[in-house]
Design a protein around this nucleic acid. Structure first.
Lengths: 159, 159
DNA sequence: GATCGTTTTGCTAAAGTGTATCATATTTTG
DNA sequence: CAAAATATGATACACTTTAGCAAAACGATC
């Protein structure tokens, strides 16, 4: 259901974006971005996830650095933060031209499964909202909540 | 920018929905719903917010009960949980017929201001997603992120 | 309206995510 | 290569939310 490959960020892009804002290129920041580049299927990574994956590669990056780097990469537009209501902020690799590839999320309230889908039909709506509100809109996020095929047969009445 | 009044839930609705699922009607649950009914303008209340408001009315409801009740009212469809990424789950009073009044959020990344807007144009999209995915969709959530009028003149490069 | 079984509450402890602090180490610039 | 600024790592801390359990309250039935 997810679309074709779109150009995402590279380590060189990271270097460029960091330096234009006065931040430094460190091995930790490179490694953290590399985790996202190396695992294109493994979306929605939390700080804890990234930390564990790095530990698995014998990296000694501290947890605080992971948190700080994820937030920084988010503010640079290289990663996108997402909230699924599971208690932690998750991130995914952004695409260089975000208008090219907008994907959204379908969350099962029962089994917590998350399915991605592509959708460009919101661009018109976004332009409309921007005009009416005076906002400069940089991103939008759409989530549908419901019950997936497997969970529709089970009783939802309690628990 | 927010639409006209729509019918929202009452204490009687609460009673009905609780009993059909075997839950009991308690004064605490009534008081908590009443907070939302009494403050139609004060949307987006967190557990802490509700607890403080109740304390201000000399109610002695415990914080854990507030958390439990908010989650319960959410599962009954009386309240809707929303996440703005500010570290806590917030709730707003749902409308009896959710298809009648879908409002979404425009969040300023700089000053954290939240503006609501009405939008029904997603119903068609929702039906489409449901058909393609096999999901039974119960709710959707749309958030636009950007910079409000007041914050567009200020430099966004750092911090 | 009293009784019984079940649910709910309130308190407190604890889990979990994320942030602040600060000494030490690293990067970039010249 | 040296200096100045930034970044890291470790730990302690803050904050939101959950878990556990004894006591209280609800509501169905008699």
């Amino acid at each position: 259901m997810t679309g074709a490959d779109e150009k995402t960020f590279t380590i060189d892009d990271l270097k460029a974006r960091l330096s234009t804002k006065g931040y430094k290129l460190t091995p930790q920041r490179k490694e953290i971005l590399q985790v996202f580049i190396d695992h294109p299927d493994q979306h929605h990574l939390s700080a804890e996830d990234v930390h564990l994956m790095l530990r698995g590669e014998n990296s000694k990056i501290g947890l605080a650095t992971v948190y700080r780097s994820l937030e920084l990469l988010g503010s640079l537009g290289i990663l996108l933060p997402i909230e699924f209501g599971d208690g932690c902020t998750r991130y995914e690799l952004n695409t260089v031209d975000p208008s090219k590839h907008r994907h959204h999320h379908l969350v099962c309230l029962k089994c917590k499964k998350v399915i991605e889908f592509d959708e460009d039909r919101l661009d018109e709506l976004e332009a409309d909202i921007a005009l009416r509100s005076g906002f400069w809109i940089t991103n939008h996020e759409v989530k549908f909540f419901g019950y997936c095929k497997d969970c529709q047969t089970i009783d939802h009445n309690r628990a």
